[in-house]
Amino acid sequence: MHNLPPYPTVLKPYGRAFVELARDREEILCLSGDLTRQTEIDLFQEEFPDRFIHAGMAEANMISMAGALARRGFIPFVHTFGVFATRRPLDQIVNCVAYPNLPVRIVGFMPGVSSPGGPSHQAIDDVALMRALPNMTVVDVADATEIRQAVVAICDVPGPVYLRLKRGEIPIIFGARHQFSLVRAHVIDDGDDVVIFASGMMLSSALAAAQTLEDAGVSVGVVNVPVIKPLDRTTVIEMASRARAVVTAENHSVIGGLGSAVAEVLAEEGLGRRLRRVGLADTFAEGAQSATWLFKKYGLSTQDVVDASWEVLGRDGVAPQAPVLVTPPGEYAPV
């Protein structure tokens, strides 16, 4: 079961789950790139100071060290913002982690345009960069329930993992019975007209958009795809085959991420479904005081998912309008 927005939120679900996991797993090390509180690992630092390593603002060194620590039986979790976790030390990830296929967990916070910190702080290509690397698993989760489960699930993946996490207040979309899987995408709704594949922060937008479209008589499938690599091809094929058109929604560039991964499967299977990719349209995102404004300006709102679905289905007239949600303090609703 999932709720509809606005959602209740929690703080530091990753940090808490990570501490719980580390309690039983002494081989876990926690590395910080000078963003300890921002990446929720102040909790780990308090609990296990001897296993907490300040690497400082030196991401290249941090990643290469983590690779060597992993060779010696540790499971290093490396933390910083997504941009600094992927774009900056890319060559180190390739040579010291991905190629030797080592169990380093790279945890990148503040995905896509969720930060008004300008292009230097916006991880809009992290999924693409990590997805291109052999051996790498790429995870972009949607809510606190999935975060808690994903932390445990990725711990024992034999190779490297990139875990992409929203910063700050994390919505609770799924109930306690939800089961995160590294193998299977999660079909939330079946639909004959359009199927929306969404990851991370855009899942709540997809769910809200689906509601608006259903109200206008469109049959919408919604699939939560937290694991972008390895992609669950079976579910993509199954759900896309059932629908007339496909929409992807990701808080990332439309190049190289979820949209590209789904497009590859559609083309390889010759499914012939029209596709619209909601995401950053090959652009950097400037000029913001708030993330909300960026989501609107760059076409990542719920309405953009509705419009893309309406258009790809060739429907006439104006697309139905998603309601503007009033979000009380401490709750979360997609833009």
Binding site: R51, S64, M65, A68, Q92, N95, C96
Partner: peptide, 18 residues
């Protein structure tokens, strides 16, 4: 890819220290 080996060595030395 040059310049990365010292960090790897530091990682090994840190593992031994830990």
């Amino acid at each position: 890819s040059l310049g990365q080996g010292l960090s790897s060595a530091v990682g090994l030395a840190l593992a031994a220290q830990l």
